[in-house]
Design a protein around this nucleic acid. Structure first.
Lengths: 219, 219
DNA sequence: ATGCGTTCGTTAGAAGTTGTAACGCACGGT
DNA sequence: ACCGTGCGTTACAACTTCTAACGAACGCAT
């Protein structure tokens, strides 16, 4: 009987083939988007017949789900590594932007347009929580959060802070985290979607300005 | 010879069929997303054979482009109407959110994940500019913009304001518009993508809080 | 070393998609 | 009343995902 993390030759081969499949899939997604991902094309690139891939992924959606998993894990690793290296919120924001620009479609696979019916599997919500916790920690480490930081929405969040998973941060910091998240995503996603393309200014500067204001008014 | 806006019976019929096609297309997109749009399914819903639709749209991408056009026009009309009715920036933000929530996939068709190679046709950039101008006007009408509003990025924008199309607003207002746009989009797109789903708080409150801060610190 | 079972990759095929080609028919302007 | 333009049809090509059945190779156990 094969255990979960067993290391039989068959499983090592299987893991390697799965890795090559996702690698080719990332190439396709980067150049043509997730909707254009073709199992047949991947199979031909690997020198196999189309149906062979179904030994490794039950369906196309299954492969995409694995890609979503990888994307979440990659982002969580990137942020955790940066935080472990002593990065503050500004450092994490920079790491986030770098990660997103390295493969825009990978970022958009997570935070872009979702398929209406799709439900993410349980394990990605765990990694998603790790990402949010890393940013939340950085927000908490920023300011002593004097009483002037109190906001009406922060007070409202006091009664709706279950999503923070028992994080000890005061509700003003939760509010702070949400503004950090939404604002960085706002600039980043519009940049990745190309909406600043013909406008002539450097999106990096807008991102930096938004981050600046985020660090200055620590309301 | 048929002129551009002619009203021959044939053209009226053609316009009506095209309208019904896009209507069915919007239904499909709303329930299954843009990537699941099927010309065949639309044709069967209308009681025609598949290839018949190619008399009205040269390709699937052509249909989607028309939907993008309709979405841009609809949003531009919504904002222009609200502005004409005397809505200030807060009113426009509310109109924007209402329009987005009415059909999330329609919003995401414009501001969501783009297909890497896709280039929007010229006429949608015109409507897109109208949308931005409406918001820009509302930003300009807000504050007298005292000298305290000057920002480094605003100064940078002074030399990169071609995209504003000769709008007379000072560069600080241009910066203000960009923050309004990116922040509202940040909250809205994460809400529409369902990333606040399991978190228990009301996204409307976060949107309102972000708008509040946008109106308060008119930096 | 020699089975034997699991797993892999194959081909064949079903059901779906977009899109083209060729064929009538019916509508509308002259 | 005619006659051309445009519309809808069926047939087909080329693609997609995905299932089914078959054969071969691989690895574990004896």
């Amino acid at each position: 009987m094969a255990r979960a993390g067993a290391d039989t030759p068959r499983e090592r081969y299987r893991a390697q083939v799965r890795a090559e499949i996702t690698e080719r899939a990332w190439e396709q997604i980067a150049t043509a988007g997730a909707s254009a991902l073709s199992l047949n094309a991947i199979a031909k690139q690997m020198g196999m017949s189309g149906p062979a891939l179904y030994r490794y992924f039950a369906s196309r959606d299954d492969l995409i789900t694995e890609l979503v998993r990888e994307a979440y894990r990659s982002l969580a690793d990137t942020l955790r590594t940066a935080a472990a290296a002593g990065a503050d919120l500004a450092g994490l924001a920079g790491a986030l932007r770098g990660w997103a620009l390295a493969d825009p479609q990978r970022y958009l696979l997570i935070y872009g347009t979702p398929v209406p019916g799709y439900r993410a599997p349980e394990d990605v919500t765990v990694v998603s929580n790790e990402i949010m916790t890393t940013l939340l920690d950085a927000c908490a480490a920023l300011a002593p959060a004097g009483p002037a930081a109190a906001t009406p929405f922060g007070a409202y969040l006091e009664e709706h802070r279950d999503w923070a998973g028992g994080h000890p941060a005061p509700s003003e910091v939760l509010h702070r985290f949400l503004t950090v998240w939404t604002r960085l995503h706002g600039v980043l996603s519009l940049e990745l979607a190309g909406h600043f393309a013909g406008m002539g200014f450097d999106p990096a500067r807008l991102f930096a300005a938004e981050l600046e204001e985020l660090l200055a008014h620590r309301a």
